[in-house]
Design a binder for these strands. Structure first.
Lengths: 343, 343
DNA sequence: ATGAAAGCGCTAACAC
DNA sequence: GTGTTAGCGCTTTCAT
């Protein structure tokens, strides 16, 4: 390693080689103008001196960044953790950097982060909205600025968005159907807000399955709320206060199932003996480790990959890939194993 | 919302208000030079026009960024997920942004990411090294550049680093002692590499406890490896190939425990009936949900908070906080409950 | 209290 | 092939 590592810039290289800094700049970027010989010399010297281009200057003058901004509502949950890991990995392999921001389910933070990312001149934006997000103005703004935008998993209700989602309706339908076929017909739904696609579609899937099998829906058991533990906790208490418990629960997310579980245990209810729970999400580690829940498995890794691919397509080809929606299949996992008895 | 959202810059505001852009710049930054009245007008207009300062230009000229770079080896695991969430949250509350990069346990990626972050002119760097990291040259370079650097959880063996870690030695000691007091003396250690602090200290804690209680250590059961599932999987197979299994396992991380678990199940071994497993990490969600493992609980949230506080101190006061090491306590959790019978 | 000039480190025209 | 000239949008002296 060289000793002089501080503040090596184009001009330093230029002086040492007695050429202009433009030559250096071009050589480093493998511009066809420059001779092979020159490029060799420049790269050698750059390595030796430990030259690292100044990201800020570079992007300010070129007005692109090779950065994709990512905005997620949560991070310390397996589903989002997996999405994020996958997005990072796919971006890295395509020579893009990710700048991740976390909105913590707060619309105000989400807005602030998007503005930050825009001011960094990101080349594109991948967003999974908060449970609070109802105002789409910020997304309109992104669109007006012609910054490619892809939603992942959670999509606000606007026209012409590009998105990567899962088959929420079908997943909820299958999970509900599975309960019914097991003769568990007293089913509650801990659903998400209807202003978000996943809340709406999952509730619709649940309702359709119930209707198709002529099972009456108990309106006390149709809970609409957020996606976090506290929502599940509160959901239990609301259901509990109304009388006898259902035999089965379909929960809109894994955290909601956890919250329900906590409240149930505190009331001496045994899970899954007294109440069976299926939730959207993903059992961790290859579904090896036993869980008290069953899952509507969401392919997080694929979601991340597809979102990056789509945003790259949008960056390179803004018109052709506008408003494309990719929907991936879910899979009902019973005791960690894929369930084939239902569609 | 205003319609003209694209490319509003200082000069645009300046023209509208018939002042120079310097005045605007100062007003926006609440500089004492500017009159209250002027500031009011400027802020109003900025809001109206949706002005967002250009991050690139701003930081290029001021040569600071209000950004802290974060480098972690993994993300889709609860422990790192929690650290990351906590770092983001604490940074946000202090008006800093985080740029997160993920090395995926690869030293080469780690190096590349650190260079990227340096070229973004981050104000400081929080790093948890990969299991491969043995060359400290890149960290020396950071130090030479006078960029504040804090290690979190995983620290390379260099002199004068600032770090936030847990009591790895004590945690491993307590976990081992607990086994011994339960009369489980055939204990294997699935340890981490000795070139990283956590590998070394946890192995030392295990060894000390065994020695203090005069329990012989079976060298076939002292595995040194990485921190991921595959290492646990391989660890099982190495132990299994040597003859009878131990009664208990101390695993250096949760993923290692998972890998061991998978391999064990495949061989018809029952966990925890045949082999009890304790690992470093954290049961998820308030330790409510039953787990087949016991845990040496690491306070991830506090780790993140302390790391951010320390880096902010270093940024504001580079000399005073140099080489400070914060060590947090671990807690042995048995069946999700804190164990008081051992230290 | 306000502004003019210079410059952060780089890239993009356009000459030569 | 290589260099010259501008300029990205902001902040910083230093005048006024």
């Amino acid at each position: 390693m060289s000793k002089k590592v501080q503040h090596v810039k184009l001009e330093d290289l230029a002086q040492k080689l007695n050429v202009s800094k433009v030559t250096i700049s071009k050589a480093l970027r493998d511009h066809p103008d420059i001779s092979i010989e020159m490029k060799r010399k420049v790269n050698l010297l750059a390595d030796e001196l430990g030259y690292v281009p100044n990201f800020l200057a570079k992007n300010l003058s070129s007005r692109k960044s090779n950065i994709i901004g990512l905005v997620v509502p949560k991070i310390a949950h397996f589903f989002f953790g997996s999405i994020i890991e996958s997005v990072y990995d796919t971006a890295f392999k395509n020579n893009y950097e990710i700048v991740l921001t976390v909105s913590q389910e707060m619309a105000a933070r989400e807005r602030k982060h998007i503005l930050s990312l825009l001011s960094m001149k990101v080349d594109g934006l991948i967003v999974s909205v908060t449970q609070e997000t109802t105002d789409n103005a910020i997304f309109e703004r992104v669109k007006n600025m012609k910054v490619p935008l892809v939603f992942i998993d959670r999509v606000p209700t606007t026209e012409c968005t590009s998105s990567v989602t899962v088959d929420d309706y079908g997943g909820a339908y299958s999970a509900t159907e599975y309960f019914i076929k097991k003769r568990l017909t007293k089913i509650a739904h801990l659903g998400g807000y209807n202003h978000i696609n996943i809340g709406k579609a999952r509730t619709a899937g649940f309702t359709s399955a119930m209707n198709d099998y002529n099972i009456p829906i108990n309106s006390d058991w149709m809970i609409e709320g957020g996606f976090a533990e506290e929502d599940g906790y509160e959901g239990f208490n609301r259901i509990f206060s109304k009388g006898p418990l259902p035999e089965a629960i379909l929960a809109v997310t894994y955290p909601v199932a956890l919250g329900f579980y906590e409240a149930a245990i505190q009331h001496g209810i045994s899970i899954p003996d007294d109440v069976q729970i299926t939730c959207f999400g993903s059992n961790s580690y290859k579904n090896m480790v036993p869980s008290v829940f069953n899952f509507v498995h969401q392919p997080a890794k694929e979601l991340g990959e597809e979102a990056v691919k789509l945003i790259l397509n949008l960056i390179n080809n803004p018109t052709e890939f506008e408003c494309s929606n990719i929907e991936l299949k879910t899979q009902l996992m019973i005791n960690g194993k894929s369930n084939k008895s239902v569609a």
